[in-house]
Amino acid sequence: MSEQFLTAFYGGTFDPIHHGHLQPVIALAQLVNLQRVILLPNHLPLHRPPPQATPYQRLMMTRLAIADTPGKLFIIDERELRRATPSWTVETFQAIRREYGPMAPLGLIIGQDSLLTLPQWHRSEELLKLCHILVCARPGYLHSDHWMVHRLTDDPIALHHQPAGLVYCAATPELDISASDIRGRLHAILPCYDLLTPSVQGYINEQGLYRTASVRTLL
C-alpha cells in the first residue's frame, strides 16, 4: 500500500482573498507537511451578508493570489462557487470523501474563531467522521477544548496515518487582517498593498471593486 499524504481544504468567501488567508495556511502546511491545500471559494455564505464581488471576480482574485504565492501548494476547487444555493460543509465533504475514498487522510482548515462555533455547525459530529480539523491561530481567540479533548493531537504525523477525526491546533502567525476591514479601506480609497498580493490589488483597482457599498452577486 502506497503512503497517503493528508490533503487539506480551506473554504472561504475570499471577498477579497488576502494575506490573512494565505500566510497562516502556508505556515500550517510547513508544520503539518501538507503537499497540497485546496481552496474552496464559497458562492453564498450561510451566516453572513452576500459577497460584494461576483463569483467570477472572487475566483479571479483567488487565482491571482495563488499565482503570487511561491511554490505550488494551492489549487482551487470551484464546486461550491458554482452552486446557486448555499452549501453545508458536511455535504461538500461527503462528496469529497466519495471522490478520495474511505482511507484517504483529509483535513478542513479553519480559524480559532470558527473552532469555537464548530459544535453548532450543521451535522458537526458527522463532519468529524469525514475529515480532520486543522486550526489556524487567530488574534484574540483561545480554543476551548472541553468538547474535543478526546480528539486533540499535537502530532502532525498522526494526521497522515488516519483518514479523519483529529483536531490539530497549529501555532500559525496571528495576522490581524480581515476582508471587511480591507473592503472598508478600499471604499475609503486607502491603500492595501501590505494586506493583499500585488496582482489582487491590481485586479481590484482595474475592476473598481469595493468603491461603493452596493452588493454585487451576479456572474
Rank of each mutant, 00 (worst) to 15 (best):
Pro70Phe: 01
Pro50His: 11
Arg48Asn: 06
Leu116Lys: 11
Met61Ile: 05
Gln52Glu: 12
Pro49Lys: 08
Phe93Gly: 06
Gln52Trp: 01
Pro49Gln: 09
Gly140Ile: 04
Gly20Ile: 01
Ala29Met: 06
Cys131Arg: 02
Leu39Val: 08
Gly71Trp: 09
Leu64Glu: 01
Gln120His: 13
His122Ser: 04
Leu115Cys: 10
Met60Ile: 07
Tyr56Val: 09
Thr89Val: 03
Leu73Thr: 09
Gln94Arg: 15
His143Ile: 12
Leu134Gly: 08
Tyr141Val: 13
Leu116Met: 10
Val37Leu: 07
Pro102Cys: 06
Gln57Pro: 02
Arg138His: 07
Leu31Ile: 13
Pro102Met: 06
Leu34Met: 12
Cys136Met: 14
Pro41Asp: 02
Glu126Arg: 12
Phe93His: 04
Gln30Asn: 14
Pro70Arg: 09
Pro49His: 09
Ile75Ser: 15
Arg79Gly: 05
Gly140Ser: 07
Pro51Asn: 08
Arg98Glu: 15
Arg63Glu: 14
Leu64Phe: 07
Leu34His: 05
Thr54Cys: 10
Leu118Gly: 06
Leu46Ala: 13
Ile38His: 02
Ser144Asp: 15
Gln112Val: 00
Glu80Asn: 11
Pro119His: 11
Gln94Ile: 06
Glu99Pro: 03
Met148Ile: 15
Leu106Asn: 00
Pro24Thr: 10
Gln120Pro: 00
Thr117Asn: 12
Met148Asn: 10
Ile110Trp: 01
Leu59Val: 03
His47Arg: 13
Glu125Ser: 12
Val149Phe: 01
Tyr141Asn: 04
Thr54His: 09
Arg97Gln: 08
His19Leu: 15
Gly101Asn: 11
Gln23Leu: 14
Pro55Met: 08
Ser87Gly: 14
His19Met: 10
Asp113Tyr: 02
His132Cys: 06
Gln120Ile: 00
Leu73Ser: 11
His122Tyr: 15
Thr54Tyr: 09
Asn33Val: 07
Pro86Lys: 05
Ile76Phe: 08
Leu81Met: 06
Val90Asn: 05
Leu108Thr: 00
Leu115Val: 10
Ile66Cys: 01
His47Asp: 12
Pro49Cys: 09
Ala104Trp: 12
Gly20Thr: 01
Pro50Arg: 13
Arg123Asn: 11
His122Met: 03
Phe93Tyr: 12
Leu108Tyr: 05
Ala53Asp: 02
Pro45Tyr: 09
Leu46Gln: 13
Leu40Trp: 02
Arg63Tyr: 03
Ser114Leu: 11
Ala67His: 11
Thr69Phe: 05
His18Glu: 09
Pro86Ala: 07
Leu130Met: 12
Asp68Phe: 02
Gln52Lys: 12
Val25Arg: 02
Gln23Gly: 00
Ile17Met: 04
Val25His: 02
Val25Ala: 10
Ile109Pro: 02
Leu134Met: 11
Trp88Glu: 10
Trp88Lys: 14
Pro41Glu: 03
Leu34Thr: 05
Leu115Ala: 13
Thr85Ser: 13
Ser87His: 06
Pro139Arg: 06
Gln23Arg: 14
Met103Pro: 00
Arg138Glu: 04
Thr117Arg: 11
Met103Lys: 14
Gly20Val: 01
Leu127Cys: 08
Arg98Gln: 15
Ala84Arg: 12
Thr89Leu: 01
Gln120Met: 08
Ala29Pro: 03
Gln30His: 15
Arg63Ala: 06
